[in-house]
């Protein structure tokens, strides 16, 4: 059932990108099959993200994308750039592989933060301004990503 759903999604993606031309399936068919297989391997037992929940995430995502771009542009355009780069670490509670990837990618879209490395549960986040603690923002983003995949987060062991 999961496989059928994946195939359907990737077939849809290919049709949108390449159109109905039957010749395109020379590339498309292997690509769709391979994508479905790789997705299964990488996502393992991740829950499929719900479409409605993804739509609920969209306004937040668009707003943060805009803030992120505007923020970095403002910093760059100052005659004396207002940056103080540095690293912070964050312990992530998400456990599903697909949810983790989405979380890491979304960190890089939030204003001023970039997911730089990951060791097990600990993410190293690079910040354009490392003087502020970004833990609350990351926790908020993590909660939203968890909601897409219907995952329940354990409360932080420490505060």
């Amino acid at each position: 059932m999961a496989i059928a759903r994946r195939l359907l999604v990737f077939f849809g993606v290919w049709i949108i990108l390449a159109g109905w031309d039957p010749v395109s399936w020379v590339i498309g068919l292997p690509a769709v099959l391979f994508a479905s297989w790789v997705y299964g391997r990488l996502a393992e037992d991740s829950a499929a993200p719900g479409f409605r929940r993804m739509f609920a995430f969209l306004p937040f995502f668009l707003r943060e994308s805009f803030r992120g771009g505007a923020d970095v542009a403002r910093r760059i355009l100052r005659p004396r750039m207002r940056i103080k780069p540095g690293f912070q670490t964050y312990r992530m509670r998400l456990s599903q592989p697909a949810a983790r990837v989405l979380f890491l990618d979304c960190i890089s879209l939030l204003p001023g933060s970039l997911s730089a490395d990951r060791h097990q549960d600990v993410i190293h986040v690079h910040l354009l301004d490392a003087s502020l603690d970004v833990t609350p923002e990351l926790a908020d983003l993590e909660r939203r990503v968890a909601a897409i995949f219907g995952e329940r987060l354990e409360p932080h062991a420490y505060v």
Binding site: S65, G68, G69, D71, V72, I76, I83, P85, S108, L109, P111, G112, L114, H126, L128
Partner: peptide, 8 residues
């Protein structure tokens, strides 16, 4: 820092 500028 350059990666920040590029992605966003």
């Amino acid at each position: 820092s350059r990666l920040h500028a590029l992605t966003k």
